[in-house]
């Protein structure tokens, strides 16, 4: 029986299309980079326009990117961009906003509590949990090594 399963696996692998990994990585690299360029432009723009520090301007930048990603998701075309750009749009903050908005939209028919409330963090929940855990861990390391 084990032999049969191994033999079958070979047949399956023989008929698997080659994923275009290099091309996917390149597209993700370029689009992710462009999101970074847009972010930097927004930081510079806000600090020049509103006469604020770069640190405050980056908060404004994050809000702008989250707003745009959520708006484009709501308008129904951001999922097509994600399918094309893959991690280029999933890894930046745009991906986080997109995951929440798409989940919120999907479950709105089940109402504000059992629908949106219970499901909006369906995809983003893991990001938050492990984001908080790793922040705590690195904070601890920093305290031990650098004394705070």
């Amino acid at each position: 029986m084990m032999m049969e399963k191994k033999k079958y696996e070979e047949i399956v692998n023989k008929h698997k299309p080659k994923e275009t990994r290099v091309q996917n990585a390149f597209i993700a690299f370029v689009t992710g980079g462009l999101v970074g360029v847009l972010g930097q432009f927004l930081v510079d723009f806000y600090s020049w326009w509103l006469h604020i520090s770069s640190k405050d301007a980056s908060t404004f930048m994050i809000i702008t990117l989250i707003f745009l990603a959520s708006l484009f998701t709501a308008l129904g075309f951001f999922d097509k961009w994600v399918t094309f750009a893959r991690c280029g749009l999933i890894i930046p903050i745009t991906g986080f906003a997109h995951s929440m908005t798409s989940a919120g939209m999907e479950y709105r028919r089940e109402g504000p509590i059992y629908g949106i409330g219970s499901n909006i963090f369906k995809l983003a929940g893991s990001v938050i949990l492990y984001g908080v855990v790793s922040a705590w861990f690195f904070g601890l390391l920093r305290m031990i090594i650098m004394g705070g």
Partner: peptide, 17 residues
């Protein structure tokens, strides 16, 4: 898609298979 995978507007990339 909603029941078995991701929210429909998420558009998670999938392999050719």
């Amino acid at each position: 898609e909603k029941q078995f995978r991701n929210p429909t507007e998420y558009g998670a990339p999938k392999p050719g298979t």
